[in-house]
Design a protein around this nucleic acid. Sequence first.
DNA 1: CTGAAAGCGCTTACAG
DNA 2: CTGAAAGCGCTTACAG
Lengths: 319, 319
Amino acid sequence: MKKLTIRDIAELAGVGKSTVSRVLNNDPKVKTETQTKIREIIKEVGYKPSAVARAMNNQPIKSIGIVVTRLSSSAENQALSEIIDFFHQHEYEVLVLESRYDSELLNTHIELMVQKQVEGIIFFGFTDQGLVNKELFNGNIVMIAVEQPGISSVTTNSPLAVKHCFEYLKTHGARNIAFLGVHESDIQTGKLRLDAYKEACATHKTKPIIYLTDMEYADGVKGCKALLKAGADAVICGTERLTGGALVHLLREGKSDLPVAAVGINDYIRILNPGIFAADLQYAKVGKEAAVLLFQKMKGNNKNTDTVVEPLMTELAEL
Amino acid sequence: MKKLTIRDIAELAGVGKSTVSRVLNNDPKVKTETQTKIREIIKEVGYKPSAVARAMNNQPIKSIGIVVTRLSSSAENQALSEIIDFFHQHEYEVLVLESRYDSELLNTHIELMVQKQVEGIIFFGFTDQGLVNKELFNGNIVMIAVEQPGISSVTTNSPLAVKHCFEYLKTHGARNIAFLGVHESDIQTGKLRLDAYKEACATHKTKPIIYLTDMEYADGVKGCKALLKAGADAVICGTERLTGGALVHLLREGKSDLPVAAVGINDYIRILNPGIFAADLQYAKVGKEAAVLLFQKMKGNNKNTDTVVEPLMTELAEL
DNA sequence: CTGAAAGCGCTTACAG
DNA sequence: CTGAAAGCGCTTACAG
C-alpha cells in the first residue's frame, strides 16, 4: 500500500489538488459541501499530509529545542516535563539535548538546532555558558536560571527563599543560624544564595557561619558536621543535595531536632525530615512559564520578559 | 541576508546544481578539483543544505522517538541520557515523550511518531501497556523493561539481583530475611522480584516474610517497620524508593546495623548507608544497549534480540 | 468557489 | 565527469 498524496485525494473526490490543499488549510472560501466531501474521503482512506512537503512551502515543521544541563537533575526534569507537555499539546516536536555544564557543547547543540530550523529554544543556563547570540531563532529564545540582556528569561527567586529560611529560623528561636552552600564560583546556586544569607545576617546583626562546598550528598554531610562544630544551632541548606546530606548527618547523630531550613524540596528531603521548613523553588512552574513565554514569542510577541518565579514556602506537617 | 540554496552555490562555483548536489552526497564520480572548489565555496559562505528538501526525495530526516514513563525516574533518565547521546552522535533528532504509565497516552505518542515518520522508537514498557503493533516503523522498535514476542527488548535481570541479595544476607549470618517489595500487580517491579525472593526462600528452606506496598518513600518506612515487628533480622528492598524509606526508618530507630540489601542503587541510598550491599540494575547500560540495538535494526539487521543486562553487585566501602 | 501552473530546494536517471 | 530536466508533495497567486 503506497503512501497517499494530495493528488490521490483530489482524484477520489473529483476535484483539483488546490481544493484539497485549501481544505487541509481550513480555507473558508471552499464550499461547505465540497469541504465535507473531501474531509470524509481523507478520514476514510486515512490520508495524512506530508509535513515535509508542507515545510518546503515555508510552513515550518513545528518544532522547538530544549537544552538541559543534566537530565538527572530533578529540578530540571520537572521543568522539562512541563515544557514537553505544553509543546506536545500544541503539536510541536520537542528536541531534547544535554549540555552537561559545558559551554562548547551548549554551542554545538544550539548550532544543531539552528540547522534543524527549530522555531525556538529553551535552555537551562549555567555560570560559564558565555553569551548567547540573541539573533538566533528570530529571537525565539528563553533562558532558564540565568539572565542575559536582550533575551527572555525565567529564574527562581532563590535569594528570597534564603531570606525566608533565615527569618523562619530566627523567629523560631535560633541564634546561630549557619549557611551550608555551594562555592561562590557558581553564580546561580552559589553566590546569589550566599549573598542573600549574608544580607540577612547583616539585617539581623548576626555573625555569619558559612560552609561552602560542592554539590554532592557527601558534601552536605561534611558541611553539616563542620557547622555544628562551629556552633550553629540552626542550618540553612542551599541546595537539595546539601539538604539531603545534612539531614542524613543529623539523623545519624541523633540530632534531628536541630532546626533546618532548605532551599529546594523533594520527596527525599520530605521523608528525611517531614517537619522541615522548605522553600519550593517551583521548577515545574518555571518550566511552564518558560514554555508559555517561548510560545508567545513565536506567535509574534517580541518584547523580552524576565520572569521570576517566587518560591513557595512549606512548613511541612508531621507525617 | 537570504537563505542560500544549492543554486547559489552552483552559480558561485560556475557549475550545475547537479554537481553541487553530488558533492553534497559524496558522489566519488565528481572530479577532485571540482569537489574541492565546491567544498571551499560551501564552507566560505556557510551554506547548509535544507534537510526538508532532502527529505522530499526520500532521504528521510534522521530521527527517532523515545517514550519514557516518567522523566523523574532516575533509572529512566540515566537510560535516556545514553540514548540521546548515542543518537545525537549519529546525527539523529531525538523526540522525547512521557507515557506516565498510561497505555492510551503511549498509543497516542506512538501514533504521533508514526506521523512524524521517525525511523524507529525506543520505549519503556510497563505492566498494562497492551500489545504494540510490531509492524510499525518497519519493525524498528525496542522495548525496555518489558518483553513482547516479535519485538526486540532490553531488560534488567532483577530476579537475579534479588537472588544475590538473599544469598549475600544469608552468608552474612541473617536468618529471617524479609522482602520489602511492590504489589504483585506490577509485573516488572513487583511480581518478578517477589517470585525470585520466594524461590530463594524455598531453596534455602526459609520461611518468607513479605511486605508488599506502593512505590513511595513513605511506603518503605512503613514496610520496614512492619517487617522488623514481624521478626526480620535482615531486609531485601525491592526498589530504590523502598530502600530509601527503609534506610531512613532504620536510621531514625538507631538500627542502622540491621543488614539491608537493595535492588537498585543511587547516590541517595549510598549516603544513607555507605556499606549497603546493592545490585546496580545498570540503567545507563540498558539505555546504551537499546540505542545500539535500534541502530542496528535501522541499518537492516532485522532479527529480534532480547537482551538482558546483568546487575552489578556492589558491596560498598565505608565512606 | 475552483483549477492549472509555478515554485519551494533538493536528488537522480538520462544523455552527453 | 557534468548538466538539463523531471520529480518529490505540497501551497498559493492568478485567472476564471
